[in-house]
Amino acid sequence: MILFDFEYEPARSLPEASALLSRLGEGARAMGGGTDLLPKMRIAITRPTAIVGLSGIEPEPPSVTAEGGLRIDGLTTLAALARAPLVTTNLPMLAESARVVGSDQVREMGTLAGNLCQDTRCLELNQKHDYQFKAKCFKRGGECCYPFPNNRPGRCWSVYMSDIAPALIALNAEIETVHAAGGRRLAVAEMFSGQGIDPISLEPAELISAVITPPLPANFGWGYHKSSRRGGFEYAIAVIAVTLTLDASRQACTDARIVIGAIREKPVRVHEAERVLVGQTIDDALFAETVNAAVGEARPLRHHGFSRSYLIDNLRIYLRRVLIRAVERARGHASTT
């Protein structure tokens, strides 16, 4: 039961929703599926004065852009995203990343834009205990970070848990936003502030209308892995998303994007590791070198009970497997779905 009252305003279009958010002021929040916002309201981490409901807006089906990529409506539910034939055939990596989010029910409710705009999480923060109202952490407006007591004042190390954002960054996707002052188009990687307190750097009344992916080059391969304790209906231990392109002989890597999610305040792109990989002939030693560079650069926060050394071991094992899988796909050895 939600223990406080709020206004509810249904929106019929995104521009109308953005205008409503501006009019209702800073206490207003937009709600797509509600699977991130309502649990936070239950434990009173967030107390909106008004909710602008987006569930009445019908999303457009995914379509192919003029450039040959895909355009996916932000309000597409994750279930629809995972099932859409255009997505499963053209961007199986995105369909896979949507399929591993939450449960069937969460995927039927949650939207793509909502998944990207989800708040960061922390084992201490996302609980309801009396002491959390008395002795608040930084994110609740208090004076100490309990999981990291030596943290700099105001610095929150909660973790951004989206399973889809790393895949979209690896695919070099962009988002299109709607805002009263005019929408904009920006890379998915640029929508994050890197701050645990306020992880999404969009304006308060700015809403994601669509995600646009570029066309895929020839000899393109991808790999994706979400680690979790039970293998279903969980937030990730770590998410690894890799895309790479091989040269015509399919022996050397010409381009790579390696993104690790659910380990810090935003998805981490490991540029150093990408530089190790690009321009080299693929072999086992190169994989090992890439993995070493990536774990050195990723600096995972210990989160949700996992120690840093455990997370590094996890990354070592799965990043290598994901790289191998991506190369197999680029060489056409494995089925692309």
Partner: peptide
């Protein structure tokens, strides 16, 4: 998280019920 600090919930009387 700004709203957690600044915004207080409205009083119940101010919120409209709907059919």
């Amino acid at each position: 998280m700004l709203e957690a600090r600044s915004a207080q919930a409205q009083s119940p009387a101010a919120v409209r019920s709907r059919i």
